[in-house]
């Protein structure tokens, strides 16, 4: 078995899809909350005209966290003409729904309404938008914000999602390259969750890693189309480190800055500390060096041991060489039929 097979096993372990069993309770809770939110907003005269997932669930880049909550980013949209001038007004309605349903820590944050459902390890964010002619505006403001800090702010939530899901820049086997990009994002997220302290890990925003990876992604397929996630990850990290995201502050200190590629084009790490930037830079550098060692290593078991140190125990180490080369069990692609281009 190749090291690529080991990477795919690892990916299967860490990926979190909306249809996964582990996600079932959270998904049911999400559906239930959405129903209640829709009813409450409608009752108040702000019928929901659209809802959609945002965040990693919408881009298939979500990972299971070894200990922390499942995240749900559920956007709701009301019509521009129905929307109140005060965006916090609709956020309060959503907050009440969450409080009534027993959520702990339900509160209004600047970009969304958020809450935790501790028994399900569920963390939910509900951004609220108003829409007119395809233009979305995000409800900005906290519970007690004054008028200056409350606004319907221009936003492009679908644009960001589409940008991440785009395969327009990949030539040949574009779908497979997009899949490799998403696996790369998941590997980076799992690495972050394992290698950073819980205090810092929350400051290494997933969307920040995702945007950097997307902008600097280096697909790796050999001439026969065989993928190498190991080399793609290494090359992508190398490109990120050389990609002007880290601004030197002197004395080997860095601040990280990553702009959103879509409206409102703000810096995702705005306000991020030097400590966060420095740690991220140093750990990415270390990761790249370790991946170089893995690439240079010829033995699959030794490669797996090194990768286990990077990604944690979900990256399994075969117990012996014989195990490593044991005949693979036949697995089949999940498609029942595939169109072919062959003739003779």
């Amino acid at each position: 078995m190749s090291i690529q097979a080991k990477f795919l096993n690892f990916h299967d372990k860490i990926k979190l899809g909306r249809e996964d069993d582990e996600y079932k309770s959270a998904r049911e809770k999400d559906d239930s909350i959405l129903k209640a939110v829709k009813k409450a907003l409608k009752d108040e005269g702000y019928p929901v005209i659209e809802d959609f997932l945002q965040g990693s669930q919408s881009t298939a880049t979500a990972v299971k966290h070894p200990a922390d909550d499942f995240d749900i980013d559920r956007s709701v949209v009301i019509a521009f003409d129905d929307a109140p001038d005060d965006p916090v007004k609709v956020k309060k309605i959503v907050l009440k729904v969450l409080e009534d349903r027993g959520f702990k820590n339900a509160k209004i944050k600047t970009p969304c309404v958020t809450a935790d459902y501790s028994s399900l390890s569920l963390h939910i964010d509900i951004p609220i938008y108003r829409e007119q002619n395809g233009i979305y505006e995000l409800a900005i403001g906290k519970n007690n914000s004054n008028d200056e800090n409350k606004e319907w702010s221009n936003s492009d939530p679908k644009g960001l999602r589409d940008w991440i899901n785009s395969k327009a820049n990949y030539i040949g086997s574009a779908s497979d390259k997009l899949k490799q990009f998403k696996r790369t994002v998941r590997y980076l997220k799992r690495w972050r969750d394992v290698k950073f302290s819980s205090a810092v890990v929350k400051k290494i925003f997933s969307i920040g890693l995702t945007v950097m990876a997307k902008e600097k992604f280096q697909p790796n397929f050999d001439d026969n189309g065989k993928t190498s996630d190991l080399k793609a990850l290494r090359d992508t990290i190398s490109a990120i480190l050389n990609g002007w995201y880290f601004n030197s502050q002197g004395n080997e200190q860095y601040k990280v800055s990553v702009d959103l590629p879509t409206s409102p084009y703000r810096d995702i790490f705005d306000g991020s500390s030097v400590n966060t930037g420095t740690q991220l830079y140093n750990k990415l550098t270390s990761l790249k060096n370790k991946l170089d060692k893995v690439i240079a290593e010829g033995d699959v078991i030794k490669q797996c041991k090194l990768l286990n140190e990077i990604f944690g125990d979900d990256f399994e180490v075969p117990s012996s060489t014989s195990n490593a080369s044991t005949a693979a069990k036949a697995t089949y692609v999940t498609a029942g039929v595939a169109g072919t281009s062959q003739g003779a």
């Binding site: 097979a5 026969n224 697995t331 692609v333 072919t340």
Partner: peptide, 14 residues
């Protein structure tokens, strides 16, 4: 299948 490494339905030479 070069993406999943499972037995595929199309040749990876295609």
């Amino acid at each position: 299948c070069q993406e999943t490494l499972a037995r595929g339905l199309n040749s990876n030479l295609n």
